[in-house]
């Protein structure tokens, strides 16, 4: 049965798009049929992170408005044959997205895919609400920082009240994904600890993605980090997260960079 997963956060810049792309790739690498949808109308970026920016012809809004068929708007990944992208519109007004229209598209995608990953825009407005509206589960991307945790708490409140599942009285499953985590700073008490965040948000942990240069390097070249450098620390963390999503029990660790001697010496001084 298909699962609809919204990747959300409230706050911008915490890594929703990076995480959607990395999780989508990792799921596809495990043989699942995956579609990633960009809900950020007017500020689309998932196409860029996925390296498909030059292949966008039709978009989500074209499909909602009946200008294009779903099959015409879906872009198949060139590297992974069971991974697809449904891009957002760059030019249209975000009000062109309707609840009914999104509902119809999600229902159709449910018949074709195992996983439907909805990349939410930042904020708590219409776009974010529609991205979570039909979700079965939610990944809440959180940085170990006060404003991000506060916004995650707000988003959790919305997931529990504004989704179709919540309105039916069902429970929407929530997973906290902590990104940009720096274990050295957390150990020195300079950064909220994992336990602090989980206690405050009262939701289970899906994974801890360490702060890493590999993430920027991957987005620079349009290849999600799980594809670009599968052995890197963030890629291993995303892959573990995906295996947990699929029901496996995996010990929670913060994957660390395998540093060379020089970088280790220099890195310590810079920290």
């Amino acid at each position: 049965m298909a699962k609809v997963l919204v990747v959300t956060s409230g706050k911008g810049g915490v890594g929703k798009t990076t995480s959607t792309a990395a999780l989508g790739v990792a799921l596809a690498q495990m043989g699942e049929r995956v579609v990633v949808i960009d809900f950020d109308v007017g500020l689309r970026n998932l196409d860029l992170v996925m390296g498909a920016e030059r292949r966008v012809v039709f978009d989500l809004i074209n499909v909602v408005q009946g200008v294009a068929k779903l099959a015409q708007a879906l872009i198949r990944d060139k590297r992974l044959e069971n991974l697809w992208l449904l891009p957002a519109s760059q030019t249209r007004d975000k009000d062109a997205l309707t609840d009914d229209g999104v509902g119809r598209i999600i229902a159709e995608l449910r018949t074709k895919f195992d996983w439907i990953l909805c990349d939410s825009p930042a904020g708590i407005e219409r776009g974010a609400l529609l991205a979570m509206r039909y979700a079965d589960e939610a990944v809440i991307v959180t940085n170990p920082e006060v404003s991000s945790v506060r916004d995650s708490d707000r988003i959790i409140g919305m997931l529990d009240s504004k989704t179709v599942k919540a309105e039916r009285g069902e429970r929407i499953e929530k997973h906290i994904l902590i990104t940009r985590y720096d274990s050295a700073r957390a150990a020195r008490g300079e950064m909220l600890s994992i336990d602090d965040i989980l206690e405050i948000l009262a939701a289970p942990l899906l994974g801890i993605i360490p702060e890493s240069q590999d993430v920027l390097r991957a987005s620079n070249v349009g290849s999600p980090v799980t594809l670009n450098n599968a052995a890197s620390a963030p890629a291993r963390a995303y892959t573990d997260a995906v295996r947990r999503l699929m029901g496996e029990t995996i010990t929670m660790t913060v994957p660390v960079e395998r540093k060379g001697l020089m970088r280790r010496l220099l890195g310590r001084r810079a920290a």
Binding site: V146, D153, E190, L192, D196, I200
Partner: peptide, 24 residues
């Protein structure tokens, strides 16, 4: 340097207790 994370944690707990009360 003194650890600032406990301050962050305490501020968040107070703020969120208040905000959750208002929610809905």
């Amino acid at each position: 340097p003194t650890a600032s994370a406990p301050v962050a944690r305490e501020r968040l707990q107070i703020l969120l207790a208040h905000e959750r009360g208002l929610r809905g």
